[in-house]
Simulated scan of single mutants.
Amino acid sequence: MKKLTQKYATALMLLGAIVGIGLTAGTTTASAKAKTPTAAQIAAARKKIVANEKKVDSAIDKIDISNLSNLNSIYTYGPIATQTVQPYNMYQTYKLKSPLTLTNEFRHKTVTLPKGSVVTGLNDGKGNFQNIDNTTLSIKNQKKVFKKLGNWHRSFAMSKNNGGAMQKYTRSTAFSKNSLASFPQLSVKTAKAQYDTAASSLPFISVTADSQLAYHKTGQTFSATSYTKIKKFKRTHSTITYYLNKRLSGVTTKKTKVGNSYQYKLSLRLGHVFQSSDSYNGDAGAYNLTVNNGKQAFFLPLDNVAESYISSINGDEYVSDNDKKVSTAFVEGLY
Rank of each mutant, 00 (worst) to 15 (best):
T84N: 09
H216S: 05
L302S: 02
L4H: 10
K255D: 10
L15Y: 06
V188D: 02
T27P: 05
L186V: 04
L270N: 04
G116Y: 05
H272C: 01
K109S: 12
N52H: 09
I310W: 05
K231T: 06
T82C: 04
T170K: 14
T256I: 15
I205K: 08
G127S: 04
V56W: 08
S58H: 05
A193W: 01
L4R: 14
T112Y: 05
T120V: 13
L4F: 11
T256W: 02
K54H: 10
V305K: 04
K109F: 15
D196Y: 07
A11M: 15
A59K: 08
T136F: 06
M158R: 14
D210M: 12
G315W: 10
T225M: 03
A30H: 12
Y169C: 09
F298T: 01
P184E: 03
A306Q: 08
L12R: 00
S200V: 09
L270A: 11
T135K: 09
L100H: 13
T29H: 04
N314L: 06
L23S: 08
N260L: 09
G127V: 06
V273E: 04
S277M: 08
H108P: 00
T101K: 10
A25T: 12
S308C: 13
A59G: 03
Y262V: 07
T228M: 06
A165I: 03
L149A: 01
G164N: 02
V56Q: 11
N260Y: 09
P184F: 07
S73M: 10
K109V: 00
Y262C: 05
T218W: 05
T76G: 15
N161K: 13
K95R: 15
